[in-house]
Simulated scan of single mutants.
Amino acid sequence: MTPKQKLYIARHLAKLGIDIIEAGFPASNKADLENVKLIAHEVGNTVVDSDGHIPVICGLARCNKNDIDKAWEALKYAKFPRIHIFIATSEIHMKYKLKMSKEEVIEKARTMVAYARSLGCIDVQFSPEDAGRSEREFLYEILAEAIQEGATTLCIPDTVGYNWPREFGQLIADIRANTPGVENVIISTHCHNDLGMATANTLEGAYSGARQVEVTINGIGERAGNASLEEVEKYSGMLVQPHKAIVGANAFAHESGIHELGYDFEGKELNDLFWRFKSVAEMKKVITNDDLMALVSN
């Protein structure tokens, strides 16, 4: 998307009442850094309703100083900036992707959360990537360290869409029950849709005590996507299936009843209009209100 399109969407998310907008990954490239900075300036300081709502503007960062510096460079202009730091915690990711031991991962997480706080960012979110496949006791330990260093939100991702709802709900419940200091922070869900379970997992996470849920416009995300907020196919280029709930074209369709338009017919007159309507429907896929009014006036 262009910077203009991203800003347009961010403004409407703010109007919708979204609490936190994760605007991008500033360290990924200069364009993304500038986009996040623009949203931080324009949306992160603008009251959009009578309640005085201004959303938190968030940026993503890996567990290294360069990423965190870039994130803060872009976010510091917002009234409520947040840095979202992540590092993998599953055995398979630590061994083959990070090539780091558990101790090294904990140390990296601990020091980078502290570093983000040292820059002046008082709102730091920490994510143990691939939490759904991480060893529980290790997860409790690294989350406790992040809390101790000043993390304010713990995001629990099902990074590869591996979990089923009951399983993911239990994960959230276990973290709440076993992580020292967890009562002082907010737990968030972050669910991918590889098994078609992202929304169900998100709901189970909320039922189990998560107070923040991470969702995306149109469900856009890696592979099968993320839990979906709503659809903006005009900019994304990803077509929405007609029968999709809430936003699909069929969700606004109904059996044609001319009295919805202020007309009232009965008996033979209604039957005649109905058969003329059926004739038009055989030739046109979509019948508009204008078509119905033309039928009545003919």
Rank of each mutant, 00 (worst) to 15 (best):
L239T: 12
L261H: 15
I220W: 03
D272G: 01
I220V: 13
E269L: 05
A227V: 03
I220N: 03
H254W: 09
M283F: 05
E222T: 07
F265E: 08
D272H: 09
S228H: 05
E255I: 11
H259S: 14
N250I: 05
G248E: 11
H254E: 12
A281N: 14
R211K: 14
G221S: 04
S256H: 12
E222R: 11
A281F: 04
S208V: 04
I220A: 02
V232H: 14
L273G: 03
E266A: 02
I217S: 01
V280M: 05
L270M: 14
I220T: 02
S256D: 08
V213F: 01
E214K: 03
E260S: 15
L261D: 11
N250M: 07
G237W: 07
L273S: 00
N250K: 05
A245I: 13
E255T: 14
S236E: 08
D291V: 00
A253M: 10
G221Q: 01
E269F: 03
V286E: 14
V232K: 12
V247I: 06
G225W: 00
G267Q: 07
V213H: 01
G262P: 05
A224D: 09
S228W: 00
R276K: 13
R211P: 03
F265Q: 12
E260F: 07
L273C: 02
Y235H: 11
F252C: 04
K244N: 15
Y207W: 10
W275S: 06
V240Q: 13
V232I: 10
V240R: 06
I220Y: 02
A210V: 01
I220F: 03
E222D: 13
G221A: 02
N289F: 08
M238G: 11
E282H: 09
Q212G: 02
D272P: 00
H243C: 02
D290I: 10
T216V: 02
G257L: 10
G237K: 12
E255C: 07
R211Y: 04
Q241E: 11
N250F: 05
F265N: 04
S236F: 04
E260N: 15
I246L: 11
L270F: 10
T216R: 03
H259P: 03
D264A: 12
H243E: 12
V232A: 09
W275Q: 13
A251D: 13
V213K: 01
N289P: 03
I287Y: 01
V280S: 04
N226Q: 06
N226A: 02
V286H: 07
G257S: 14
N289V: 13
F252L: 12
I287S: 03
Y235Q: 04
L270A: 11
R211V: 09
K268L: 08
R276H: 09
E282L: 09
D264L: 13
L239N: 12
D272M: 08
R223L: 09
D290M: 06
A210W: 00
G209F: 02
L239H: 12
Y207K: 15
G262K: 05
Q241S: 12
A227F: 01
F274S: 10
V247N: 04
T216F: 01
A249H: 14
K234R: 08
H254V: 06
Y235V: 06
A249V: 13
S228V: 01
T216E: 00
V232E: 10
Y263E: 13
G257I: 09
D264F: 09
S279V: 13
R276Y: 04
A281D: 11
L270S: 09
E255K: 08
E282D: 08
K285F: 04
F265T: 02
E282K: 15
K234Y: 07
S256P: 15
Y207V: 11
